[in-house]
Design a protein around this nucleic acid. Structure first.
Lengths: 118, 118
DNA sequence: TTAATATATAACGATGTCCTTATACGTTAG
DNA sequence: CTAACGTATAAGGACATCGTTATATATTAA
């Protein structure tokens, strides 16, 4: 009967992309592109608060975008798969070529001028 | 001094990925992978309401992920660039291989069982 | 053991986001 | 012109998400 036509898969895939769709998580992933890092190094590289970084790392880890490796009292994270890096690079390219209008995309909750982004 | 270390680019790139990170927009993009479609066809293919589909299409268009072409009183949309499709495919692959845990990623606002999706 | 360091979790406030229900706009048919 | 159709926008409520400030856990050092 095909009533709804929204396969489960779509929701899950959207969730996957959400991993990349937040500035903090993306900053973390971008930092990890260079090399594996401990939480402390990530905090320093991104400027995020430590609890915030941890929280997003947990999210990225649950989603399988990063893997963790305990090292004494440090925890070292790294990107889990080459394709995660590929996705990040494709994002860069799209941004440069076809998606320059992104920063004007003010659908939903128009930006009201200097709204908060710290 | 590197105080904040969050280049403008990160925010914009996160915004780009947001285009893919919502079930409705992703359903639209996924539908358009097959072929260009009018709004009506998209509505039928995805099961979205017409206003909702239009809204998300406007969003995707502003961001440069789709292009539009007026055809009489119809408007036909299509994916703007091959790399958009590549991103979608990479998403599929990641989901199959390394990101199977995504649907359990309940950081932030745990799902509370059948929360609302429609 | 106790203290110190590194990381993780909890609770809560402040927005952001999405959907729905009207309604407006634009184009073609009669 | 007027009606009908296809698409777009507006306003509003319901909820999701993010960041912060405590605080908890884990591991090593002394």
């Amino acid at each position: 009967m095909l009533t709804i036509a929204r396969p489960e898969g779509i929701t899950v895939k959207a969730k996957l992309f959400r991993g990349f769709a937040d500035p903090s998580r993306l900053a973390i992933l971008d930092a990890l592109r260079a090399r594996p890092m401990t939480v402390g190094e990530i905090v320093e590289a991104t400027g995020l608060s430590q609890p915030n970084a941890s929280s997003h790392l947990a999210c990225l880890h649950d989603c399988g975008l990063v893997v963790r490796e305990q090292d004494g009292r440090y925890v070292r994270y790294q990107i889990s798969d080459r394709r995660v890096s590929m996705l990040l690079r494709l994002g860069d390219e799209l941004l440069a070529d076809v998606a320059r209008g992104v920063y004007e995309c003010t659908r939903y909750g128009a930006p009201k001028a200097g709204r908060g982004r710290r």
